[in-house]
Computed example of a mutant assay.
Amino acid sequence: MTTQSRLPNPLKTVPELAPVAEALFKAVGNGSVPQTTVSLIHLRLGQLVGNTYLTVMHTGALRRAGESEERITAVSSWHDAPCFTDAERVALALIEAVLTPNPHGERVSADLYAQVSVHYDEKALTTLTFAIGQGLFFLPLATIGRPLPGVAPGEQWRD
């Protein structure tokens, strides 16, 4: 069994990344989108790309935030799960649209954009967009570096 990721600690190797990551966390955490919603879309991102590290990390974050097992488990089948708000549903639809090719047109349709706009004002919609971007920013690190699920970041990077 692997006991370290493939890469060394990225913040030690490329310390210039620290302020970028901090800025993303600050922007996404501006309060216009509930942290639960951000964690739900990040969990769905991990599921859609098939990344265990991201799935475990965001499942843990939702548990620590007090989310029910029902809601956490239902993220993978949110379409027919009654436990999500309409705002959470459109956020989950948005992450799926961004990550799933649409053979019939653009990924984020005008209809989906209109639905999202009903639940999120301009600041929140921009924040939600950056929350998706934040997840995508760290995706190569999670897939190439292969950090270990459930292991604290400071303990898993290759020396």
Rank of each mutant, 00 (worst) to 15 (best):
E70R: 14
A87Y: 04
T100H: 03
V90W: 06
A74K: 09
N102T: 07
R71W: 10
V75Y: 08
D80R: 10
H79R: 12
L99Y: 05
S77M: 11
A93D: 15
V90D: 04
E70T: 14
T73Y: 11
C83A: 11
E69L: 00
D86Y: 09
R71A: 15
E70P: 07
V90Q: 00
A97E: 04
C83R: 12
T100Q: 03
P82E: 14
E70F: 08
I72E: 11
N102E: 00
E96D: 03
I95R: 00
D80P: 13
E96V: 03
A87F: 06
T100E: 02
T73I: 10
A81W: 06
A91R: 03
D86V: 01
R71P: 09
I95G: 06
D86P: 01
S76G: 11
R89T: 03
A97Y: 02
E88V: 03
I95K: 01
A81P: 05
I72F: 06
V90C: 06
S77G: 14
F84S: 02
I95P: 02
A74P: 02
T85Y: 06
L92A: 01
L94V: 08
N102I: 07
E69M: 01
S77P: 09
V90M: 05
W78T: 06
E88R: 05
T73M: 05
T100V: 06
R71E: 13
L92Y: 09
L99F: 08
T85D: 06
V98G: 09
W78F: 15
S76P: 01
R71K: 15
A93E: 13
R89L: 00
T73H: 12
H79C: 13
T85Q: 03
P101G: 02
E69T: 04
E88M: 03
A87L: 00
E96G: 03
E96L: 05
L92Q: 05
S68G: 09
E96Q: 02
T85A: 03
I72G: 08
T73A: 14
S77I: 12
E70M: 14
A74H: 13
F84H: 04
S77H: 13
I72D: 05
C83W: 15
V75T: 01
L94F: 11
A74N: 10
V98F: 09
L94E: 09
V75R: 03
L99C: 08
S76W: 08
V90F: 02
S68T: 14
S77L: 11
E70V: 14
R89Q: 01
T85S: 10
W78S: 07
A93P: 10
D80E: 15
E96F: 04
E69Y: 01
L99P: 03
H79I: 15
V90H: 02
R89N: 02
D86M: 10
L92W: 01
A93N: 09
W78A: 05
S77N: 15
E96M: 05
A87W: 04
V98L: 12
A87N: 00
H79P: 07
E70N: 12
L99M: 10
C83K: 13
A81C: 11
P101W: 07
I72A: 12
D86G: 08
F84M: 07
P82W: 15
S76L: 12
W78M: 07
R89I: 00
S77K: 14
N102K: 00
W78C: 07
D80I: 15
E69W: 01
A81D: 06
